[in-house]
């Protein structure tokens, strides 16, 4: 059976998962980028997600949450937390994450989480302090 599958693959040369990037796909890339830029805001704006705002805002907050979990799972250097937030924000087209609604809401929710161990809580508290969010 496996040999049959291999033969079929040999016939068709590849098993997919090819990148759509690259010069031969430039039109597709342009098209995809444009669709992503144009369609999503409509869906974001029209799909209000209740208390958290638009779908784009919700997606951003979910990524911040995922980043916080990632950050707590590994040691870090000073500044890594803020730089990581910058990168998450950039993936959403946001530069000024300190003013972006939801950024600190998510981090504060993590700090308040009773399931968080004391060491992780202390790390987040320190980061918030470094960002001027604690007196």
């Amino acid at each position: 059976m496996r040999a049959t599958a291999l033969a079929l693959f040999a016939l068709t040369l590849a098993a997919g998962c090819a990148s759509i990037e690259g010069s031969s796909e430039s039109a597709a890339d342009s098209s995809a980028g444009l669709v992503e830029a144009l369609v999503s805001p409509f869906e974001s704006s029209s799909t209000s997600s209740g208390s958290g705002g638009t779908a784009a805002g919700v997606s951003y907050q979910q990524d911040v949450q995922a980043f916080v979990c990632s950050y707590l799972s590994a040691p870090s250097e000073p500044g890594d937390f803020a730089r990581g937030l910058t990168q998450v924000a950039q993936a959403h087209g946001v530069s000024d994450w300190e003013s972006q609604p939801g950024t600190f809401e998510v981090i504060e929710a993590s700090v308040s989480d009773p399931a968080l161990d004391s060491e992780s809580r202390a790390r987040l508290e320190l980061e918030l302090e470094a960002l001027g969010r604690r007196d």
């Binding site: 997600s49 209740g50 208390s51 958290g52 705002g53 805002g57 919700v58 907050q61 979910q62 949450q65 995922a66 916080v68 979990c69 990632s70 707590l72 799972s73 590994a74 939801g102 809401e105 998510v106 929710a109 993590s110 989480d113 009773p114 399931a115 968080l116 992780s120």
Partner: peptide, 24 residues
């Protein structure tokens, strides 16, 4: 493997903090 503790935390947090739309 590195991520698992964070995920557990996340899932628990999500269960505890209902209502926030980013946790739907």
């Amino acid at each position: 493997a590195l991520w698992a503790p964070g995920l557990v935390l996340w899932a628990q947090a999500a269960a505890d903090l209902e209502g926030a739309s980013w946790q739907r």
